[in-house]
Design a protein around this nucleic acid. Structure first.
Length: 207
DNA sequence: GACAAGATTGACT
DNA sequence: GTCAATCTTGTCC
């Protein structure tokens, strides 16, 4: 994992979220000692996507989405849970990918400590709110640079020579996004097929 | 200034 | 399978 945190290795993040989202599957999300493998995501585009927080323009809350790609957009959901997005696309487009589920890789003891109610390991990160709780991500991480080795939250490639595209990885299933009321018909939810760590409701058909 | 909605989760029946 | 908890953000008057 020599250059896996190099910004140049993530140039492909500067594209449309609906294209970037499936490529994030299999990548590692590192937060201190805790590391999770991304197994489920959802794409949210900017003004063009009625379901996106950015649909009605920039606000103090979603400002990070309008910034450069490779940053983390964290927001509070239902007043209780934190949800994390990876900002992609050029600055100003507010294109982002919601991280819905991760598979615990390391720092699992710390994850259990923050999620004592989880019944099994697959419950630790099987949802947007659970993911943030397990990795210790909160509002303080909003705007963090995922491509900066010195950042508290980082994005990393899974192996020393693993392809960043994910195109040659496990099969990916797609389906409609979860928990939204607008643009629900867009099949922008992506998950690794057969992975036990994806959130409910279960992903639909194989792409 | 007040009101309504929300990218969720966990507990209970 | 159903429902309540909780509170921030954004919109409307």
């Amino acid at each position: 994992m020599t250059a896996r945190n190099a910004r140049s290795g993530f140039d492909w993040l500067a594209g449309r979220s609906s294209v970037i989202a499936p490529r994030l599957l299999g990548l590692l999300l590192e937060c201190g000692e805790r590391v999770g493998r991304i197994v489920e995501v959802e794409a949210y585009e900017g003004a063009d996507d009625p379901a996106s927080h950015a649909h009605r323009g920039q606000t103090p809350r979603n400002g990070v989405m309008f910034g450069p790609h490779g940053h983390l957009y964290v927001y509070r959901s239902y007043g209780m849970h934190w949800c994390a997005n990876v900002v992609c696309g050029p600055a100003g487009e507010a294109s982002a990918v919601l991280l819905r589920a991760v598979e615990p890789v390391s720092g699992i003891d710390a994850m259990w400590a923050d999620r004592p109610r989880a019944r099994r390991e697959s419950d630790l990160g099987s949802g947007p709110g659970k993911l943030c709780a397990a990795l210790g991500i909160d509002g303080g991480h909003d705007g963090a640079d995922l491509l900066d080795p010195g950042s508290p939250v980082r994005l990393a490639l899974p192996g020393p020579d693993g392809p960043p595209s994910g195109a040659q990885g496990p099969a990916v299933v797609t389906g409609p996004r979860v928990g939204i009321t607008r643009a629900v018909e867009r099949p922008w939810r992506f998950a690794l097929a057969g992975n036990a760590h994806v959130s409910r409701p279960r992903p639909p058909s194989v792409a």
